[in-house]
Design a binder for these strands. Sequence first.
DNA 1: GCACCGCTTCCGTTGAATGGGACGATTCCA
DNA 2: TGGAATCGTCCCATTCAACGGAAGCGGTGC
Lengths: 247, 247
Amino acid sequence: MANSASGDSVVDRIVRLLSAFPEDVSALQLSELAERSGLPLTTAHRLVRQLAAHGLLDAGPGGLVRPGLRLWELVNRTAPTLALRQAAMPFMEDIQQVLNQNVNLAVLDGWDALFVERLSRLGSVANRARVAGRMPVHTSSAGLALMAHQDRLLQSQYLDQFADPDGKVATDAVRVLLSETFHQGFAQLKGVVDPDTWGIAVPVLDPRQRAVASLGVVVPLREMRLQALVPALQTAARGIARRLNDA
Amino acid sequence: MANSASGDSVVDRIVRLLSAFPEDVSALQLSELAERSGLPLTTAHRLVRQLAAHGLLDAGPGGLVRPGLRLWELVNRTAPTLALRQAAMPFMEDIQQVLNQNVNLAVLDGWDALFVERLSRLGSVANRARVAGRMPVHTSSAGLALMAHQDRLLQSQYLDQFADPDGKVATDAVRVLLSETFHQGFAQLKGVVDPDTWGIAVPVLDPRQRAVASLGVVVPLREMRLQALVPALQTAARGIARRLNDA
DNA sequence: GCACCGCTTCCGTTGAATGGGACGATTCCA
DNA sequence: TGGAATCGTCCCATTCAACGGAAGCGGTGC
């Protein structure tokens, strides 16, 4: 065997290595990392050493490997979500102060809502949306708000993808959800993500009325201020959109 | 010429590619990216294509390259600062609400303070500390707060490094700054970063009294509530430390 | 003391990475 | 309108960096 037995490139290997870190764990044993990433121990060792030399990984004593600070720095300096985050943060903070609940900001990636930012209070209800976490479009208010305001083509691709499990029924259910969300101007899911919580999200629209992001809150089921809540979110979303377009 | 003319590995090349993105620009022309990273156009093209296949970069039409969402996701799922950020955010928000000023959270990396998080108000004073931005230890209150609470060895290494430009004078000045910061329990810099602002930072200490992070604010020079401000920061810092250790 | 386990180093093999060259598309002047 | 410059993309022979099995080394547990 020689250069790459499995036919994948160095880039593939590096990605496998970086992806091998589980979501919650911060440090991994070299041998475990090798196994998780499906790389021979020797190869993993060499790559880790090289990556660590650049600070992309941090190789501690005893083969303990953790993500490196420089990688974080590199990515967060130039992240594609940076402008969005900057535009949104002040508004998110305002929302959070007024409603005193979890606020989150998401973008659409594939058929998932990818959460870009989230503010949560010590006392507020559980919020499954983690930063850099994903939730499928149809199980999150953020996802619905995002998908409801995409162009027809993307929506139908999404719905097609969906038809597999049991034909047309599921597709129609989601279609109705999206349609309602579109006409209401906001998405809501009661007790879907978590039995005791209520997710509400509004789209952040670009000048062509496409959703570039979604702004949402997670509130307890007993929360009754829906009439005040949705307009507040919509106002904030407009503010975010304005700052995005001005910049 | 064949495999690597310049004697650097694929990892080196990838790092050069990723580092080539300027701080503020979100998209780069392929040719410019190649030049910035010092790679032959062909090589840059191939690597970009490979990285884009994994979503680490996003190759738009016409050779427009931007950082990819998946890279951001990957890094922010497993970032070494994740636990710190989670522990600190609620406290940072409280501070911000009460003082209505910029709040920032930094860690020490080399001889720099690396800013991990920052909350800023639309109306508050300018704040040079950007997320994923750096400032040298001796020109930022965050840096001073961090360095003042490190072990002797690291401090003396830092001060040595410093002696180069003009011998002992500069070293002594910084030493005094660090000593003051240590005994006061907080760092302050008036008008150093920005002529009209005042930076104040306190350390977040681990059980061995070492600074793992710093919590700071940037306020206008006229701000007079120092007596209330420092204790508020210190209380928050203790709260963060407690949550870090409990978890 | 021996067996086990995991990190590290060594080194011969070889195919993946390399990058100059060519081509097509687009833009910009003259 | 035609020609030059620019930029992305593709091709492909060359070759050296990546590969990974094997062996070494240090620590831990029985």
